[in-house]
Design a protein around this nucleic acid. Structure first.
Lengths: 309, 309
DNA sequence: CGATCTTACGGGATTCGTAAACATA
DNA sequence: TATGTTTACGAATCCCGTAAGATCG
């Protein structure tokens, strides 16, 4: 039994108009073609759905019973196909993204805005989690897209760099070092240093890089949030070092930033996706929006605006 | 957007087997044909549902989202078409029939039995109503089939005779007239006559026919049910006249019947259907069962068995 | 006789299968 | 290299539209 959608459409059209001739227009068919379509449908179904003389046309009891079913089938059919079509046309769908806190807080909102403007019908879920958790969420499929540090070569992950995130110095207002455009770590560490707590990825990075330069890190305060570093620095408790992503945030809290060198510590931040799992169109569009934002320049500009070169 | 059922079946088959090659069997297609079917589907839908290299095959996120929908569409499709197909094959469906009480009580049960044996899956609704109401129920479409007296020429009804229903005399056991094989109305009316009440169609028929013969009808008792006539006659209250349909019923109540002549009063009993409204297959089958029962002979035999020739 | 559905038939598009090319593990 | 998918192409099928035929009111 091989019935086609066209045949069903033909039947419904004829049933609704009560006329072959009128139904022709609805199905874009000549009347003989329509006649044959109905005939074939009836043959495959095993009986007459329509009772027709040359002058009258009516539904058989079976046709009467089948009409609502046929209409439902066609409606379902069209809805389902439009749904999947819309998904491809980015007029519908959903995407989940995970981003590390510094990015989620500072750059992501703008990205979300751009995305929403472009694809208003797509539902976006944002997960603001620690950098390591971003990687994990991508790996196990909880999100399609992650923004975090380069997780390194991996069998099941892809990394596409978006920008280089340097560490910058955070200083209280009127701190003498603010007179310089750039500050060395040695200079910075003359003040009381406010660091992230130990399990932090960033903290480990700093310690490692400084050690290579033979600089020892004396930590005065420890916190587990970058925002706290800003707050503490702003109140004059000491100095710190944060990702350049956070420059604006620091400024808003009343702490100022400066370029930090000797050594220049930086990490690649980029998009993490699963290898061998194709991205949904919605996710691809999300990645494209992130690319198009030219984050490297954006962050540089933000830095310059507050005195970081 | 013109997507075919075949294409959807192809997609589901490939998605389930995770292989073009294996899916070929399921859709009875060569592998290149299947490949093209999928390709066309994807083109019309506007994106890739399957992500394929020569060695691996997986669903795109959109394909993943669409697969359950596609499966549901196909299941609905097949169910609906099998349903209507079954209806034509008399493996499903329903039919409503109305019959006048004398027929409903006496012959219809056997007809129903035959019908059920032949078409066990078809749901039958029986309406046991007055002869005139049978006609009305057919006319307004409440039932497809009616069994009643000939309603006469009618614009919107068809009548197909099943048998001739004669009036027979009903007498108490040991009534002297029982010695005769047939009784005339004049003889019968020498006893106290038990008649149906006035609005009855049958009562009118009797009065009219007797009047033509110059016989006046003196009624001693009136009732509105044929069964009551039998009961009253059985208890010796008087004599009556009932349709031959009821012979067996009368006998069961203890009254005996005899052929009634001078005049011989009879009416055609048959199947009433709506003109210009095709019968459902289930209803056609019902009419056929009624025809096949050879009711004329059946009733004659029943009559002979209890002494009515 | 006129309106409407059905049948007949030729042309065109679609779709199929075989065979060859292509791509990945 | 071997397996599995896609492309190429000739052939068959299916489907459509025009024209003629049939039927009912």
């Amino acid at each position: 039994m091989n019935i086609t959608v066209k045949q069903l459409r033909a039947f419904v059209a004829v049933a609704k108009t009560q006329s072959f001739t009128e139904a022709c227009a609805a199905v874009h068919l000549s009347q003989p073609a329509l006649s044959i379509a109905i005939k074939n449908l009836e043959e495959e179904i095993g009986g007459n759905l329509l009772v027709r003389t040359t002058r009258t046309l009516s539904l058989s009891p079976e046709g009467e019973a089948f009409l609502p079913t046929a209409q439902r089938l066609l409606a379902d059919w069209d809805n389902a196909l439009e749904e999947v079509h819309n998904r491809f046309a980015l007029r519908r769908g959903k995407v989940a993204i995970a981003a590390m806190p510094s990015f989620a807080l500072n750059q992501l909102p703008l990205a979300m805005l751009r995305y929403r403007e472009k694809y208003p019908q797509i539902n976006v879920t944002v997960h603001d989690v620690l950098a390591e958790d971003v990687v994990e969420m991508v790996r196990n499929g909880r999100v399609e897209v992650g923004v975090s540090f380069d997780p390194g070569e991996s069998e099941d992950l892809l990394f596409e760099p978006l920008f280089q995130d340097r560490l910058v110095a955070v200083l209280p207002v009127e701190h003498p070092l603010l007179q310089h455009d750039s500050i060395s770590w040695r200079q910075l560490l003359e003040g009381d240093f406010i660091a992230l707590q130990r399990p932090s990825n960033l903290r480990l990075l700093i310690e490692q890089q400084l050690e290579e330069q033979g600089i020892s890190l004396a930590v005065e305060f420890e916190t587990h949030q970058l925002a706290t570093i800003g707050r503490m620095a702003a109140t004059g408790l000491g100095v710190g070092a944060v990702p350049s992503l956070c420059i604006r945030q620091m400024r808003e809290m009343g702490a100022h930033c400066r370029t930090l060198v000797e050594p220049e510590i930086s990490r690649q931040v980029g998009v993490i996706t699963r290898r061998r799992y194709p991205l949904s169109m919605a996710a691809q569009a999300m990645v494209q929006v992130l690319r198009d934002m030219s984050l490297q320049e954006l962050i540089a500009r933000e830095g310059q605006a507050v005195g970081v070169v």
